[in-house]
Design a protein around this nucleic acid. Structure first.
Lengths: 196, 196
DNA sequence: GACAATTTAGGACAATTGCCCTAATAATAC
DNA sequence: GTATTATTAGGGCAATTGTCCTAAATTGTC
């Protein structure tokens, strides 16, 4: 594992941040080149087209997400605790979410609207969370509707991110996170689940 | 009330559709002019800047939304029935939502990412739904947490729209709508509300 | 029908876009 | 060392962007 990041890595990282903060289309070659402080020619040497950078960024995000999920798998003692890690992202990234929304949701939405071919790849990020969450719910003894519960939780966190971004309300996120945790608790072995 | 729509109205309508389907930034002057079949010069006569059109589109959407809410106020016999109208949009606009997402949420998100000044105006659309829903929950006897319930329901419909758009899953929308209706039922007078 | 105001068309503008080329430099191999 | 490759810089490309101008056409008023 090399300690020094390559120019290519720097480009991908800068693009990752800019795509999140400004959106894919709103970010230009020049923006990324400026951020990395390289010439546009050098930039072109590493990535022929804008789609290539997008692809690299998506792959980076997929890898980072997978690492995060693996980490949660280690840290969380119980499935419930692991799922709580997921819910907790809303708190951890509170200020970013309020400014830029959810990185997964906003990219997916933007690409869908452009009918961009990479939209399918972007959905992989959602799928990562979806299957991981479904696994946890299966471990909780809800194998029959594990995927439904995963999608339900995903949707709620997406909705919270969208509204927090629109209204810029700090308290609101914490409020909904509390509700989500209560909802989760009702799916733990000893509690009777409510209909949601 | 004139029966014939002015060129200006046609422009706003076309822009409304294109902004929804392609996004604000992804839609150019030429796109709108082509859709209305007028010259760019004529276009400029009606709207000096792109922000002007955006403003007009937002105003149109606010007006249309207000009309819709007023209509629901008439049609819905009980507050519960009225709220059900809101939930039902997800079914009514199912195919559009799967292709383009929620018109309110996606515009708000896009403008936030561009740090566009009109983002505040776009949030008015959310506020319209928010206050209307809160009124209904107040009528249901939940005046203390009416706004919280309104935000909760708004968030869930936003989340469903985002995921339906990402995964293009028809059944999923209907599934979540059922859950939302059950949740709503638990807030009706005769039922014991669950914690959500 | 003459006249003024409104509306339209078509083109031009500077700037920016994604993309591409070439030459110079740095790193590596022999 | 020299030769080969990898990397970088800087400029330039055609196309598109939002914006603007001017002249023609249409409309309405008297």
């Amino acid at each position: 594992m090399s300690n020094t990041k390559s120019t290519r890595d720097h480009i991908i990282e800068a693009a990752d941040h800019l795509f999140y903060q400004q959106g894919y289309e709103h970010t230009s070659f020049a923006d990324i080149a400026d951020a990395v402080k390289i010439s546009r020619g050098n930039f072109y040497y590493h990535f022929k087209t804008k789609d290539d950078i997008l692809n690299a960024v998506i792959n980076l995000r997929v890898a980072n997400t997978q690492n995060m999920l693996d980490q949660w798998e280690i840290e969380g003692q119980s499935p419930e605790e692991r799922i709580r890690h997921f819910i907790q992202i809303l708190i951890k990234n509170q200020s970013k979410i309020m400014r830029y929304g959810c990185p997964v949701g906003t990219l997916s939405t933007e690409l869908a609207k452009m009918s961009h071919s990479a939209q399918t790849d972007a959905t992989r990020l959602f799928t990562l969370f979806r299957t991981w969450l479904a696994q946890q719910f299966t471990s909780l003894g809800h194998s029959a509707d594990a995927d439904d519960l995963a999608m339900h939780l995903l949707a709620r966190s997406q909705g919270v991110a969208t509204l927090a971004n629109a209204f810029r309300d700090e308290n609101y996120i914490e409020q909904e996170v509390t509700l989500m945790n209560e909802w989760l608790k009702s799916y733990t072995v000893n509690a009777a689940p409510h209909t949601q």
